[in-house]
């Protein structure tokens, strides 16, 4: 019988540690499918963050680094500057990228570093127990905003893709979501474009992926996806904020 669906070769055949209903698994799969389709597995180097996806260096079967919290873009800069023909990507969460690692992501984009960033935005610090992230929505309850995020106390959530898109060094910036199959398909297209931008040597590329965190949101998986759709999409509009003419 003809096989019509299988595990991407760039993804290892092993159980993931992610919670039931977490969308990290989908995001991993999309990245792996893109690496397979672009036939760059042998050239790929992944840089894992600190956070829930810290072990992604185990799941992606390519060569990999584990970076310190927030510094994956600096590590990727070091790699890519020595090995410009390799395909380098970071995989970072919102605490990693949008809080502690803000300096590194902004200046990597400003320099036009030619690597790809997969940015998982689930509006919460998950691994450490559901604390407020820079991306936590106003009114959203977390373990450190037990009465809901208060604008006066905590400011407002950060829209990283829009911010980064205004920098000249950013060649591609898009926000996608994983809350339903149609959007998963769109997400893959954006991830593929981001890698194509890198392979073409056009500069910094980032795909922000809206993801669910049933465990720390306190919702069953399906309701978590609905919560994402109802609450995150209005604040975090989907779309491409910057794209080079060459890959449109």
């Amino acid at each position: 019988m003809k096989k019509v669906f299988e595990r991407p070769k760039s993804l290892k055949d092993m159980p993931f540690h992610y919670c039931p209903g977490c969308t990290h698994g989908i995001a991993h799969r999309l990245v792996a499918e893109v690496i397979d389709e672009l036939q760059v597995f042998e050239k790929a180097i992944a840089v894992a963050p600190v956070g829930c996806s810290v072990f992604c260096y185990e799941y992606f079967d390519c060569d990999a680094y584990q970076a310190s919290h927030g510094r994956a873009p600096a590590v990727a800069t070091g790699i890519k500057r020595v090995l410009p023909d390799r395909v380098v990507f970071t995989y970072q969460g919102d605490g990693d990228l949008a809080a502690i690692g803000t300096g590194e992501i902004v200046h990597s984009a400003a320099r036009g570093e030619n690597f790809t960033v997969i940015f998982i935005n689930n509006a919460i610090y998950a691994m450490t127990g559901g604390q407020m992230a820079p991306t936590t929505l106003l009114g959203q309850k977390t373990t450190t905003t037990p009465f809901g995020r208060d604008h006066k106390l905590n400011g407002s959530p950060v829209r990283m893709s829009e911010m980064l898109s205004v920098l000249d060094g950013t060649a591609y910036a898009a926000r996608v979501s994983l809350h339903n199959p149609a959007n998963v398909t769109r997400a893959k297209k954006a991830i593929k474009k981001a890698f194509e931008v890198q392979i073409a040597g056009l500069g910094f590329s980032i795909v922000e992926v809206l993801s669910s965190c049933p465990t720390n949101w306190g919702l069953p998986p399906l309701k978590a996806l609905k919560w994402l759709e109802d609450n995150m999409l209005p604040y975090y509009p989907l779309g491409e904020f910057k794209k080079p003419a060459e890959v449109i």
């Binding site: 510094r71 590590v75 070091g78 790699i79 200046h107």
Partner: peptide, 23 residues
């Protein structure tokens, strides 16, 4: 390469050193 901070510098060193380069 001039980095944006010493925090970034040392992590760029981490990235380059991991490839085997003298850095």
């Amino acid at each position: 390469l001039q980095a944006e901070s010493e925090v970034a510098s040392i992590n760029m060193v981490f990235g380059a050193a991991g490839t085997g380069a003298r850095v």
